[in-house]
Amino acid sequence: MATLGMPASVPPDPRTVLSRHPLEPAARSWLTDAEARIAARPDAVRALFPTARRHCGRARLDAHWTADEAARAVLLTALPLTGAPLAAELAGLFRHGDPAEQRAVLRALPLLDTATGAGGEPLADLALPLVREALRGNDSHVIEAALGPYGAARLPDAEYRQAVLKCVFQEIPLDRVAGLDTRADAELARMLADFAHERVAAGRDVPHDIWPFVRAHPARAALTERLTAETRAAAPERREAAERALKALR
């Protein structure tokens, strides 16, 4: 398991990404002006943050950023706040945000976690309540953003495993989930193996991207045994699901 509290891996700088792309002149000047207003008076962010998509559009800029999320990240990094006051402003934006805004807050957390500024307090775990609230929801786009580098670096083991399993249920591809390379452990493998068995017993398919995590742990042997027993089940769809799962697990 990763050491908790370590700085998360940081996404590409949204300012750099935005500067390389042709943003409409009106959008660029809106963004520059909005940044300046927020730097001068932080609570200006409350009216500016919701309108960013209407000004900057939603075009995809690179593998990580769309124009609206990059612009919203720029607005958040312009906040002249650190520590608890920063966390409070983020909590307000999240509380009153629509799903696109909530996602943008979550995706900006790794940037805010490192940018402590001169004499500023770190964000540390102060935004973790937002991650937890997002993980209790049902919108897969928000859940996916909650399990980005900030959440993945800071959630305790049990919560991280539950969050990964929830992603599997939500059909969020696991290659979009941060932290698995260091945090996937034997207990998560056991949970995924139980999930696979449950699916097979229901005659359903198992998402293929869980297999690498099961294979790497002792859960593999136990699951192989249980799936082999399922190949003798009375219901044909259950037997067939077991055969398919066994083939994928090998």
């Binding site: 209407r54 049902n138 897969s140 786009h141 859940i143 929830k166 249920f169 939500q170 059909e171």
Partner: peptide, 27 residues
């Protein structure tokens, strides 16, 4: 309103809701 964006991409294009119920993270 200037906000009726009817061409907007469906937020759930990658979902496999066909033949399934609304996803709610516990099914």
């Amino acid at each position: 309103s200037g906000r009726l964006d009817l061409d907007e991409p469906k937020p759930d294009e990658e979902s496999s809701f066909q033949g399934n119920s609304v996803r709610r993270g516990g099914e």
